[in-house]
Amino acid sequence: MSARPNIDVSNLPTFAFGHRPLTWWCTWSLILMEGGMFVVLFATYFFLRTPVPDWPPGVNYPRLFWGTVNLVVILLSCVPNHWAKKAAEGLDLRGVRLWLLVMIGFALAATVIRFVEFGYLNCRWDQNAYGSVVWVSMGAHLLHLVTDLLDTIVLLALFVIGPIEGKRFVDASENALYWYFVVALWVPLYVVIYWVPRWM
């Protein structure tokens, strides 16, 4: 038959972590496009800010307390998130279940606090352009919190009900990667929403 050997792939692995599986590319695609969206959102904020002498215009500063609490909660969630990722990549079923549960707790807490935060922004979305951009930015991040919360719940359910598959661990690892992104979004957003009016 063929003089040159064909490439036999029957013994290749069926899953892997990091950038090797297709899922990783999908996660990063999401991160890129949503990250792009937030960049535009920040640009909008500063575009509206620039021509106005007083900022926030005609309203008080947003109250710091709950936003800062949420910052702490979201930053702290990196710890269980790290362990969830680690457990997934070590095929540690019990660890994954535990840390996913903890992560659900954190995501839930962050979501609830976010709703409280809206009450202390000292503005309304239909008051002026400042109120609009603040509310919509917070809302956009809330949407990410909720999405990841639901995602994590489904993932945990799958780890409980089964079937336990190798690629499920990849999903858990990717889910943790996405949560890091949600955290990374909140830090600059927190600074813009709560501190920029005080500084600029």
């Binding site: 909008t44 575009f47 509206l48 021509p51 106005v52 215009p57 979305w125 239909d126 008051q127 002026n128 352009a129 400042y130 109120g131 609009s132 951009v133 509310w135 919509v136």
Partner: peptide
């Protein structure tokens, strides 16, 4: 949102542009 829930992103009267 400007059209549905009354935000002011593009409304020059309320700081939009």
């Amino acid at each position: 949102m400007d059209r549905l829930i009354g935000t002011h992103f593009f409304n020059p009267a309320e700081g939009g542009d």
